[in-house]
């Protein structure tokens, strides 16, 4: 009988394998802030836009997910974009309009919109 720790380790390895298949191997990942504070600041609209694009067949090969808040109340809603071999970019005060431009310029164009990222 495996010890609890051994069981946990194999459970973790399975979890990592699952995550790897669905998320980590995706070249681009978008994480939208999703806590009460983020929702109040308007992150739901950003999430719905992404889900809508995804449902319509867009954002192919892009993983969209949600995270809790990192504590930057004054900068919410926050959206993180991680692309392979790039430093993660945290966009602040994101609106659906801004999100569209981030998709155009950063996700597809490969160019970070510096002035919208967290810098302090």
């Amino acid at each position: 009988m495996a010890t609890p720790l051994e069981q946990l380790i194999s459970m973790r390895n399975e979890a990592i394998t699952r995550l790897w298949e669905h998320k980590y191997t995706t070249a681009t990942r978008i994480s939208v802030g999703a806590a009460t504070c983020e929702h109040a600041a308007g992150s739901k609209a950003v999430w719905e836009l992404l889900a809508h694009i995804k449902a319509g067949g867009g954002l192919d090969g892009v993983h969209i997910g949600q995270v809790g808040c990192v504590g930057r109340c004054d900068m919410e809603p926050m959206v993180e974009v991680v692309r392979a071999r790039e430093i993660p970019a945290k966009y602040v005060k994101v609106t659906p309009e801004k999100m569209r431009r981030i998709i155009e310029e950063h996700i597809y164009g490969g160019k970070v919109i510096e002035e919208w990222t967290l810098n302090e």
């Binding site: 979890a15 699952r18 995550l19 994480s31 997910g65 949600q66 995270v67 990192v70």
Partner: peptide, 16 residues
């Protein structure tokens, strides 16, 4: 340590 880092609704991310 995990706030704003992992997906809180997916246990796999916490296990990882």
């Amino acid at each position: 340590r995990n706030c704003g880092v992992i997906d809180p609704e997916n246990i796999d991310e916490y296990l990882a």
